[in-house]
Design a protein around this nucleic acid. Sequence first.
RNA 1: CGGAGCGUAGCGCAGCCUGGUAGCGCGUUUGGUUCGGGACCAAAAGGUCGAGGGUUCAACUCCCUCCGCUCCGACCA
Length: 587
Amino acid sequence: MRWSRSLIATLRDDPQEAEIVSHKLMVRAGLIRKLSGGLYTFMPLGLRALHKVSQIIREEMDRAGAQEILMPALQPAELWERSGRLATMGPGMFRLKDRAERLMALGPTHEEVVTELLAGEVNSYRQLPCTVYQIQTKFRDEIRPRFGLMRAKEFIMKDAYSFDTSLEAADASYQAMYDAYVRIFTRCGLDARPVEADTGDIGGKWSHEFMVLADSGEDGIVDCPACGYAANQERAERAAAGGSLPGGCPLEAAAIPAATTTCAPLAEVATPGARTIDDLVAFFTCGADRFIKTLIYLVDGKPVAALVPGNRDLNEHKFKRLLGAKKVELADEATIQKVTGAPVGFAGPVGLKIPTYADQGLKGASDFITGANKADTHLIHVDLARDTSVTAFEDLIVVRAGDACPRCGKVLQLKRGIEVGHVFKLGTKYTESFEAKYLNDKGQSELMVMGCYGIGVTRTLQAVIEQSHDANGIIWPVSVAPFAVTLLLLDPKDPTVCAVVDTLEKALQEQGVDVLVDDREERPGVKFKDADLIGCPIRVVAGAKGLAKGGVEIKLRTSKDFDLVPVEHAADTLTALIRKLTASLNT
RNA sequence: CGGAGCGUAGCGCAGCCUGGUAGCGCGUUUGGUUCGGGACCAAAAGGUCGAGGGUUCAACUCCCUCCGCUCCGACCA
């Protein structure tokens, strides 16, 4: 491709719309242009890179035995009613009506469509296992589209679905996809690591997310350097603290650790206006860990209390899973008033008449401070065992750096990551709704066991840039680069140089090498800057000066120095170099 | 949905407080000098100042409403 004839426009300034580096670079290098919030056009350069990612995914899916299909993005809402997700996906789904007033949805994902499809196509165990996939545009009415392609309203996703005869067989399908994912991200030049994850609204029992480590990532990742345990913060567990609880009432500075003494009797303290932990820390002049926070939740509409240490946060995902609930939300003021008999800010576990779950770290908790269920009042010397009736002690809080690993007990770290892929074991959640059954070898009808597997294709592309760039621009891995080679024609008016470039371009094209020829009437400096910005892995400079010295200059985006290569050897040198670069990414 | 900020030429921004001829840099076009890491000189094109309403002799500027974009939050008692 000739630059002078293409729609490649680079920008000198960072776009005002972008916050994170990969987003800025995508716009500056002319890969994408914004239409509106969360909606982007792929420009020629961006689309080429996107196709490279798609093709890698396609090859690895095919290798893993999955078959490519293409399902409609426009779907009847009735399908979603059958699975019950019309309600749970709620406002996240784009809905519209056709001219017959039938409610339709723009597919945010395809479990319903594919299960309906396979329920019709598969009759016998002989047809199983079966894994299908598609690469397609998805639509989600995101609360807050962000960071360019990272969280968009319309994006491209690879979604795959496996169907098996048994849980064990489904495990094998899951493993095949898991392995394929590892290969895909490796081939994309990404350092992506699998972590245990929550399953969310999609349902199912178990899942792994593939995370690209990046400070700009939207997810927290808990990670144990000692044993390799890694989990999304939403799911991450921690080992029980085991008797190392801080006890002692801060009003009695010399208090003996609670475990070895009996707790003083309950006492009320007037705490006017002290509603938050911060207020209380100031009031009692002690650490937040001396308090027990009492959170009143509505769990599927019923009030439930959760007790967590004052310095910790409740993990709603864990709480929801623990209770097997569909919906967990903080109770409104009226409910809190009704349940506790006090305004918001003074709830406590003593005397509460609703189910009360406490974090496992509070087991044996003695001599803590809690709300008194009475306006402007807190209780001191609270002993959970003596003074309250806790329904159960469970792991309820958001794990953070410094907590103990649930596997080995060593100290956990916290990092941030971009979720580029997610693999789920769904079980029979959807096959039940759609009666997706087959006949087994004894002629009996059984439900198929499902798995589903997603990769955010557009997000993966941006994650590559987020992870691979420098101050001058993008550094593409050869596998996803829009062009393997940028060939800079430094003297477009010099017929000799032009002839060399023409010949080299042709030779490369014949060998299947993607080459972008910068034939613009620009000064060399502009071309060098732009070549760095768009970040193709190999730069070839053809100029009168170089030719006089014996050839063209070949330089990697990642290195400072170039090699002067005679023109007649240039094409071979380049193809060998590309082979080497590609090989370094293959598993 | 709550909070904050922003909307002026293709892009990045100033002007607004204190109302009175719409500006700068980049980019674009033309001519010239340049030519190996974002050149220089000269000329030119390009804007109903997000939209609507109000105040005023006069509104980019002040007031109101709406729309769009970006960021933070949407759970901490």
